[in-house]
């Protein structure tokens, strides 16, 4: 017993740390358990759904085959993929363009513009849905990709995030480039943007996941099933299937897995970016 405390790994153990780790562990369990059950249920045959074992007794992929035979999922996945990708690219471009302008150019009224953008952060999506709908209806954008995408093409949050990051970029970099003959757009694109890649990855992750899981607005603005995004499709699917939990969970798993993959891929990039920025000195 006494010997184990001499182990280097335990040198650092303090009560505060034990409590913190315990809480984090419990939090993790609470967050992950439903996901694990979702995955587990999707791998069980219909007869085993109410058998609450985490490891399926008779694992099977037949639910996945059934869902894909249904034929609508690939379309919904492609819709979601297309919409989330376009909106993400648009945010990475426009949010950082505006954020950069607000951070690095001194012009009259820039504070006012910034406050106006920030203030929209206080309005929840639920309240914006009706004006968006009226706008989409009047412009004839209902039931179209553009109709789903237009409210998210630029966000106040992304603009704010990028502004904060661009403010940490030393002016010297931009001025050196100005003297070297770059125009203002080139300075932004070739010098400032590469210097904020960690922020860009964070923005890309948030935006992609936000759009991948978006539900209310795509539900309201679309009427034809071919235009459904995955969450909307999944919801209509689960209504149809009523108590076929194994199929519903399969659909949910399919919707979740890409987000995990994206996070794992981009998250490494974020950490690397932060480390690199720290070493710049």
């Amino acid at each position: 017993m006494a010997a184990s405390f001499k182990d280097a790994r335990f040198n650092d153990v303090r009560p505060g740390k034990v409590i913190a780790w315990t809480l984090l562990f419990l939090g993790g369990v609470v967050m992950v358990t439903p996901l694990l059950f979702m995955l587990s249920t999707s791998l069980k045959p219909a007869s085993d759904v109410y058998d609450l074992r985490l490891i399926p007794a008779r694992p099977t992929l037949e639910n996945y085959l059934a869902v894909f035979e249904d034929g609508r999922f690939p379309g919904w996945i492609l819709n979601s993929l297309f919409i989330a990708t376009v909106v993400t690219l648009s945010n990475v471009f426009f949010d950082s363009l505006v954020g950069y302008t607000l951070a690095k150019f001194k012009f009259r009224g820039r504070y006012l513009v910034f406050i106006a953008i920030l203030s929209t952060l206080m309005i929840p999506t639920e309240m914006l849905v009706i004006p968006w709908y009226i706008m989409a209806r009047d412009f004839g954008w209902l039931d179209s990709y553009w109709g789903i995408m237009f409210p998210g093409m630029m966000t106040a949050f992304g603009t704010f995030l990028m502004k904060q990051f661009f403010e940490t970029v030393p002016d010297d970099f931009l001025e050196a480039a100005r003297i070297d003959g770059l125009n203002e757009f080139q300075i932004w694109w070739r010098i400032a943007m590469p210097l904020v890649t960690p922020a860009l990855s964070a923005l890309a992750i948030f935006t992609f996941l936000g759009n991948w899981t978006a539900f209310i607005w795509p539900l309201i603005v679309t009427t034809s099933a071919e235009l459904y995004t995955l969450p909307v499709g999944l919801s209509s699917f689960s209504v149809e299937q009523a108590i076929r939990w194994e199929l519903i969970m399969t659909g949910a798993s399919i919707a979740t897995l890409p987000t995990l993959v994206i996070f794992i891929v981009l998250q490494r990039f974020i950490v690397r970016g932060v480390v690199k920025a720290g070493l710049k000195g």
């Binding site: 970099f173 001025e175 770059l182």
Partner: peptide, 16 residues
């Protein structure tokens, strides 16, 4: 600046 054909070196180097 670019039309003045000058070059400048900054305190914190400003190399990219």
């Amino acid at each position: 600046p670019k039309e003045r054909n000058i070059a400048m070196v900054f305190q914190n180097y400003a190399i990219y």
